[in-house]
C-alpha cells in the first residue's frame, strides 16, 4: 500500500473534482444518474447501455455502429468463447456446472462481495477458478494478463460468452455489507482522482467531457452505462478485450502507469462503475469506437 501511495505521489496524482463526502451508495447513485439526466435530457435511460452511441452530437458514429452491428466483428471471438464454455473439461464437467442456473441470467450481479475470501469477485475470477478447480490448465490461468494478449483475449472471449447468457438483464449488485462498502469507497475515490502526466480523472473524460470529441475523431462516452457492454471489441483493437484492459488503456492515455490486469483496485473501480449503472440492461459483447 505504501508503495502504491508513493507511486501515485510520483505520478502527480492529486485530489480531483471529488464532491464533498457523499452519504451512501444509494444517494451517490441518485446523484450520478441525475447528472446525466440533466446533461442529456433527450437520452432515454436504457440508451446508456449503448455507450457513446447514445449521446447527442455523435449520430454519425451511431450510424456506422448500426451498420457494423449487422455483421458484428466480435462474432468470431464470441463463438470461440462459446466453444470454450461448452467443451467438456477432462473430468467431463464444463463451465456451466460451476454456476448457478447454468450461468444464465446471473451476470447482472457481478462483481460481487465474497464474504469467504473478503474480496470483490469478477466474472473473470469465477471463470478462472472454475477451470482451476476442474484441473484444467488454460494459458490464461498462469499468464501475465497485462502483457500477454493471447491468453487475455481468450479469457475475454469466454467472459463475453458468459455475459451474453445474461443479455438484457438489468444491473443489480449488492454493496450493502461492510466489506463491499469499503471496496466501493475505494473505487469511488479512484474514479474522482486526477492522475497521470496529463492530470485527468476518469470523471473528467466520462462526465465533464461526455459527448465531446477528442481530436475530432475520438468521441467520449458517458460513464453511465460503462461496464454494461464489456467484454467489448473496439474497431481499433479488432479483438474482444476485458474491461480491465479498457481501464489500463484509459490510464495510459493520460500517461499514468496502468495497474495490473485483475488488480484489486480495478476490481473496486469496476464495482463502483457497475453500481453507478444500476438498472441498465446488459448488452455485452458490443462494438465500440
Amino acid at each position: 500500500m505504501k508503495k502504491i501511495l508513493m507511486l501515485l505521489a510520483a505520478l502527480g496524482v492529486v485530489a480531483g473534482t471529488m464532491p464533498a463526502a457523499m452519504a451512501d451508495p444509494a444517494s451517490d447513485l441518485k446523484q450520478f444518474q441525475a447528472f446525466f439526466k440533466n446533461k442529456f435530457p433527450t437520452v432515454a435511460f436504457d440508451e446508456y447501455s449503448n455507450g457513446l452511441y447514445a449521446l447527442p452530437g455523435l449520430e454519425e458514429y451511431r450510424e456506422q455502429w448500426t451498420i457494423s452491428n449487422e455483421f458484428p466483428p466480435y462474432e468470431l471471438g464470441l463463438s470461440l468463447g462459446k466453444k470454450l464454455w461448452e467443451t467438456p473439461f477432462k473430468n467431463g464437467k464444463n463451465f456451466a456446472n460451476c454456476f448457478k442456473n447454468g450461468g444464465k441470467n446471473i451476470a447482472q450481479g457481478y462483481p460481487y462481495w465474497d464474504e469467504g475470501s473478503q474480496k470483490i469477485r469478477t466474472a473473470e475470477m469465477d471463470l478462472m477458478d472454475c477451470a482451476k478447480k476442474n484441473g484444467e490448465n488454460f494459458s490464461f490461468l498462469t499468464a501475465d494478463l497485462s502483457k500477454e494478449q493471447g491468453p487475455r483475449v481468450q479469457l475475454a472471449q469466454l467472459t463475453a460468452y458468459f455475459y451474453s447468457l445474461s443479455q438484457g438483464q438489468r444491473v443489480k449488485i449488492d454493496v450493502s455489507s461492510p466489506g463491499a462498502l469499503k471496496a466501493y469507497e475505494d473505487g469511488k475515490k479512484y474514479w474522482w482522482q486526477r492522475r497521470g502526466q496529463l492530470n485527468f480523472a476518469c470523471a473528467n473524460c466520462h462526465m465533464d467531457l461526455a459527448g465531446k470529441n477528442f481530436g475530432g475523431n475520438q468521441p467520449l462516452s458517458a460513464a453511465l452505462g460503462h461496464t454494461t457492454a464489456w467484454p467489448a471489441q473496439r474497431l481499433e483493437w479488432g479483438r474482444l478485450e476485458t474491461i480491465h484492459q479498457r481501464y489500463a488503456t484509459c490510464n495510459s492515455q493520460v500517461r499514468a502507469k496502468p495497474f495490473k490486469h485483475g488488480s484489486e483496485i480495478y476490481n473496486h473501480l469496476q464495482l463502483y462503475e457497475t453500481y453507478m449503472s444500476s438498472g441498465l440492461p446488459l448488452t455485452a459483447p458490443a462494438m465500440r469506437n
Partner: peptide, 17 residues
C-alpha cells in the same frame, strides 16, 4: 502540445472540448 486535440485550430482536424 497536441492542443488541437481539444481546441479548434483553423485548418486542423480538431477536438471540440
Amino acid at each position: 502540445g497536441n492542443c488541437m486535440g481539444c481546441h479548434l485550430i483553423e485548418g486542423m482536424s480538431s477536438g471540440n472540448i
